[in-house]
């Protein structure tokens, strides 16, 4: 074997060796455990704390309101549909209560008249005609919508 070919062959081997070393160093340890990805990423995706706590958590303090809501037309609407958490994931709702205004625009998100909403069991109102200036909760109990206030 001539010197030239030996050098070429040797440098090729060195190149391959260095490539394998660098690849080993850079590839995360869990890469390829389940497939062509880092298996640890699955665990990392699980560790975030949820913001929305669920109805059971709400009912643990507000059982009376929960029972009232459950007995009326809004029984399928979850607490956090209208009261989304205003606080960070780690804190409790006592710090910044998720109180809503019950304005016409807010209730109108579901109840304003819209051709795409007809025949779906959700009452539709022309919100401009229906006592346009007042907030809905001034007459309606939002937890039991047919229970009108005085």
């Amino acid at each position: 074997m001539s010197k030239l070919i030996f050098r070429l062959f040797f440098s090729f081997l060195v190149f391959v060796g260095v490539f394998i070393l660098i690849q080993n160093y850079l590839t995360p340890s869990s890469f390829g455990k389940y497939g062509h990805y880092r298996a640890d990423a699955i665990e990392e995706a699980k560790v975030i704390t949820p913001y929305f706590k669920g109805e059971e958590k709400c009912a643990s303090c507000h059982q009376d309101i929960y029972d009232l809501k459950y007995s009326d037309l809004h029984s399928e609407v979850r607490c956090e549909s209208c009261h989304p958490p205003k606080i960070t994931a780690a804190t409790e709702c006592e710090i910044l209560p998720p109180i809503i205004e019950g304005s016409i625009e807010f209730c109108g998100q579901c109840h304003a008249i819209n051709a795409g909403r007809l025949k779906k069991g959700v009452p539709q109102l022309d919100i401009e005609e229906h006592e346009g200036s007042q907030n809905c909760i001034e007459c309606h109990n939002s937890h039991a919508p047919w229970e009108l206030k005085e």
Partner: peptide, 10 residues
């Protein structure tokens, strides 16, 4: 449930 499923009123 996912957040969108949790809050869906219908």
């Amino acid at each position: 449930d996912p957040a969108c499923v949790e809050v869906c009123p219908t």
